[in-house]
Design a protein around this nucleic acid. Structure first.
Lengths: 146, 146
DNA sequence: CTCCTTGTAACATTAATAATTACAGCTATT
DNA sequence: AATAGCTGTAATTATTAATGTTACAAGGAG
């Protein structure tokens, strides 16, 4: 499969809304930053809107963050665009007549869930404010070198 | 893309080698349990062999575990079949001329790595012996009901 | 020597993602 | 109220990682 960059692109989008708040925030402008198509951006914004992270206005380029970046964790964004998609996939089609095939799904699901929860706990610790802060620091480093 | 079940299938395979050790372990038999093709099984075994987890003999159906199951963690298996593939994908193609697009990869990589490490730490804690034990318990539950 | 098997390469299929095209409908501006 | 520019969304196509299939050379057991 193609690897999904929805999560990364959603974070990108939200950071963009903050850092370029004083510009015209059309899906075209955002798409140019992510290097994707405006439609993809609007679809992403649709998910973020449904999740209550931003507000948008049909017909007008005016997406706005629904809450302070410090109150939006990476985990919240992940759920918004990826749903509860598991990080580790259980093979759903194994032979039920076999001791292994008949029970492994139940067993693996538990351990996979533990691992995923550990990762999610990490994502829950970081907010979009942290991301924006770090982006600005990285940019400042570059500016200092120039 | 299609979701990878290599990790789950590899665990399945290794558990099968143990639980059905006293049967003829052809790639055909194993494939019937995983419900995949023998070629896929042989490919998986190739990776596990390269990782030093099993030994095989060309021409003969005799795959063997290279070490006790209690010494093989899920993480070891994960690396064997998935390499160091990141759980969260950074979008590699963003606009470098943009403050966000030019720096977000560096920033996200760090946080993603933290989350992945947390998940991997969990996988490192569990061994294939745990998996086999749990499979047998699940099976015993079923047998008790019958 | 024959049969079964592994190890691999080459090719086909599947499925998730992203990109593209199209268009209805909203909003601000004039 | 006409226009221009935008959003929201559906429908279609393209891309690509993963899995499945076919084919076959070569190893091992009887």
């Amino acid at each position: 499969m193609r690897v999904s960059t929805r999560f990364s692109d959603a974070i990108h989008l939200l950071a963009y809304l903050k850092i370029y708040a004083n510009t015209k925030l059309t899906s075209d402008a955002i798409a140019a930053s992510i290097e994707t198509s405006p439609v993809v951006v609007r679809r992403l914004m649709g998910k973020l809107r449904q999740a209550g992270l931003i507000t948008t206005t049909a017909g007008t380029a005016n997406p706005e963050l629904a809450k302070p970046l410090g109150e939006i964790s990476l985990l919240r964004v992940f759920y918004a665009v990826e749903g509860d998609k598991p990080l580790f996939a259980v093979d759903p089609k194994t032979n039920p007549a076999c001791i292994v095939g008949g029970n492994i799904q139940t067993v693996l699901k538990q351990y996979y869930q533990d691992a995923q929860t550990a990762a999610e706990a990490r994502l829950a610790r970081t907010t979009l404010q942290d991301i924006v802060d770090n982006i600005l620091v990285e940019q400042a480093k570059k500016d200092a070198q120039a």
